[in-house]
Design a protein around this nucleic acid. Sequence first.
DNA 1: GAAATAGTGTCTCTAAGACATTATATT
DNA 2: AATATAATGTCTTAGAGACACTATTTC
Lengths: 250, 250
Amino acid sequence: MQDQDSYLAGYNPSKYPSLAVTVDVVALTIRDAKLCVLLVERGAQPFAGQRALPGGFVKEETLDDAAKRELAEETGVKPGHGDLERVHLEQLKTYGNPDRDPRMRIVSVAYLAFAPSLPDPTAGSDAALAYWVPVDEAKDLAFDHDDVLADGLERARAKLEYTPLATAFVNEEFTIGELRQVYASVWGEDLHAGNFHRKVLSVPGFVESTGTTTSRGGERGGPKAKLYRAGDAKLLHPALLRPTREDRVR
Amino acid sequence: MQDQDSYLAGYNPSKYPSLAVTVDVVALTIRDAKLCVLLVERGAQPFAGQRALPGGFVKEETLDDAAKRELAEETGVKPGHGDLERVHLEQLKTYGNPDRDPRMRIVSVAYLAFAPSLPDPTAGSDAALAYWVPVDEAKDLAFDHDDVLADGLERARAKLEYTPLATAFVNEEFTIGELRQVYASVWGEDLHAGNFHRKVLSVPGFVESTGTTTSRGGERGGPKAKLYRAGDAKLLHPALLRPTREDRVR
DNA sequence: GAAATAGTGTCTCTAAGACATTATATT
DNA sequence: AATATAATGTCTTAGAGACACTATTTC
């Protein structure tokens, strides 16, 4: 065996088979009350015609910056643009099985992004073949991206429970109903409107009132709703737990 | 911009500065009621004389296997040995800042290991300079390992709340008091014995009774304790939350 | 008016935590 | 005997969820 010291001192890069590090991004947004993921279409082998998560090589930059850059490139939204400022980005997991890419060894650091509804990438960007796909239609992705997406979805579902990240899916000002729709879309099950409302307002720092209301009621009736913005809490306490499902526990 | 397809097709490894992928392991155990981490001593520059997390280059193997191998090498416990079978290992986070190693770009995939008390590495292994250190004495580590350790500790503390992983720190058969000591050591605060006892037994699948008891009572008195083993739950429901601290929330 | 939604009220049940108590073992 | 620990009991309070209800808005 070698300790960290000796293997670093004796390392000669040319002795090792070449290896690359990429970032892949599971970018999630909500469109039409459905949770959607950003996918790109592959043109060439391997996996030609299949869809994949957006990603690319890591350059002379931090991993976080590489993920930000890839997301900006694929969505066609320039960094610095207001829309991207509000995107939450966090590292998800790293995938490095030797056979995950048939051509060479590629270690991919996956990121998870939560975004409010963003413009369609195809409109006015150089990301010709990127688009938002409802997550339940995102199957048979290239490489091991089915696994990456599944891990990203589970992380997103769990994070809604104990962090205020649901606010990353809505506009800066939002109604409690819109927030509830985020939970329903991500968790895939409806929540009781009354209880949800009371619960959200009772968690310290989750949301704070703007003092204003929407200019009109719901599309099919209902009163004007009060508007809120994200509060200063980093963790929800007490948490907002998913309806218990026995099969998640064992 | 490039989509994943074109950059892979056009990639020529020799064009890029060389880059290596390593795994580093935050291996935690409990010794003397204190949470300890496995560290190795560095002999050469950079960071000579400082301590670091055990780790090494990823070979022709999965990342998980690389972490298992490194842990076995540094602890001097052979894979296949009973002790290592019970070690819980999970991926923690990947660290890839361009300047984290002064010599070349190294992307390190950190792993987190929970182990029952293992033999001292120095005794009878080739890991001459590895030893267990109480986590509050593990400061000024080499590279960015202070950050890695901090992330690992926070992950461990959080995981005790909603998973049965505390059982990975104790023997196959254990008493409720031993389990409580794990929580106290990892969280750094004492727990109320009576309430903890009732709580653990009330969570379905957390522990199951062996029907036996310890052969003698506590060192300083007290009745023989019933023995338990880990149950089949993968998640604790309801969770065993840390005593609330306001500063964790904002 | 019919229908939908916002927001509140009420009730029940579970669970957390403070604290007390009993039993059993050790030195 | 003194002390420590295991295990259980009791009480209070917070919170989750079911459900009802009112008010307000749209079509």
